[in-house]
Amino acid sequence: MHLIRGPGEEDAAVRARPLRLAVIGTLAGAYCGLLGLGGTTVIAPLLVLWLGYGQREALGTALAAVVPIAAAAAAIQGAAYDNVDLGLAVVFGVPGVVTVFVGVALQQRISERVVSLMFATVLVAVGLGLLIP
């Protein structure tokens, strides 16, 4: 991804944008369906690398995209297969609502580069977690 593009390249980037969003979305959905994770780890880095998002913006947008993904997946799993323990979901999920305020506020005070490196570290942890049985 180059910072300076010629006019033709700019057009190509604009045309490729919906396709890239579609690929990222589908990939994130597949990831969620396969592994049961929200998909931030797929969406955020691809927004940075393919669509030129800043790291913070990529993480914010990815987290927003996770809402419909998790809602649909949990609803299907709960309604169709009775696989959701709602009580435990509340026990795990609600405390995080408090600390996510702190986390987001802290993130705004850290340099974009550090946010990027933190996220890369998380990706390595998740990647190794998947690779090591």
């Binding site: 799993q77 297969y81 959701v84």
Partner: peptide, 20 residues
């Protein structure tokens, strides 16, 4: 995985709202 997805929901919702 299914229960975790339900637990993620409030965290992602509030996190996205704050990021917004």
């Amino acid at each position: 995985q299914a229960t975790s997805l339900a637990a993620i929901l409030p965290v992602a919702l509030v996190g996205a709202w704050r990021q917004w």
